[in-house]
């Protein structure tokens, strides 16, 4: 347990070392947020689309932004690089569980990020004249908490593909595009055409954005949070299984 605590602390400090890249990602997603707000404002006006009026759409957009930002501190690139360059070999010699060690680092990188997200959300709330209050505050909090391990699992599983590829950029983009589409980050899932809404309903991605958002807006209750928890557990053990397969595919050059 002490080893994991150290990893957590080191990773928390690392975020400061990579503050420029963090800042860039913040400005980038800020631009995306402005574009989303602008297009939805133009779309909605004073009316409503698919059950969303402007105050509830604002809440939806800001929750989807917060869940997208979460875990974006660059940890995934460092993990991917270590696998691609073969440095993962030294990680393997360490007497800690690989998956738990990365999770500890991930949690460490969140410390600063959670503060930044809180500031970001408050700023947006101030600038856009507030948004609808949460319908189920406690359940929403639980749902947001579950987003944390879920985002880790997506990142971790994607990084593990690096055992088979020689470049992470394409994998990361494909992963981000899939999450964007099927999580509800692009557009609320209820507005998607059926041929996309159906896979979205059975895939795990909806648990990272749509789930907390619809709990916040009171469109769904406890059942959504249970599904989220189910995905956390299932993905955690899938990753363990994949890890065992991946080790057999590992190529490390030089010695």
């Amino acid at each position: 347990m002490r080893a994991y605590k150290r990893l957590f602390l080191i990773s928390a400090r690392n975020v400061f070392a990579y503050r420029m890249s963090a800042l860039v990602s913040w400005i980038g997603s800020g631009a995306f947020l402005i574009a989303s707000f602008a297009i939805w404002k133009a779309l909605l006006g004073d009316g409503s689309i698919g059950g969303y009026d402007w105050p509830s759409m604002k809440a939806y957009l800001i929750i989807s932004w917060a869940t997208m930002q979460l875990g974006g501190a660059g940890l995934e690139w460092r993990m991917a690089d270590r696998i691609l360059w073969g440095e993962v070999a030294t990680d393997l010699t360490k007497p800690v569980d690989y998956q738990k060690a990365r999770f500890a680092e991930y949690l460490g990188s969140l410390t600063l990020e959670l503060i930044a997200i809180t500031i970001g959300v408050s700023l947006v709330a101030m600038l856009t004249g507030g948004f609808a209050a949460p319908k189920q505050p406690l359940l929403f909090f639980a749902s947001m908490l579950l987003v944390i391990p879920l985002k880790f699992m997506f990142m971790y599983l994607a990084c593990m593909l690096c055992f088979w590829t020689s470049n992470y950029m394409g994998v990361a983009w494909a992963k981000n595009a899939l999450i964007m589409l099927f999580s509800g980050g692009l557009i609320p899932l209820s507005l998607l055409p059926t041929w996309l809404a159906t896979p979205a309903a059975v895939l795990p991605f909806a648990s990272v954005t749509a789930a907390p958002a619809i709990v916040y807006l009171g469109q769904a209750g406890l059942e959504v949070v249970v599904v989220q928890a189910f995905w956390v557990i299932l993905l955690w053990f899938t990753a363990r299984l994949l890890w065992r397969v991946a080790l057999r595919a590992l190529t490390v050059h030089g010695g």
């Binding site: 020689s166 983009w173 494909a174 595009a177 899939l178 589409l181 692009l186 557009i187």
Partner: peptide, 19 residues
């Protein structure tokens, strides 16, 4: 494999706009 993934990633992001 990398080539295929990169092209697909590019395709996906553009398709998102269309969707």
């Amino acid at each position: 494999a990398d080539f295929a993934i990169m092209v697909v990633a590019g395709l996906l992001f553009q398709l998102l706009n269309l969707v």
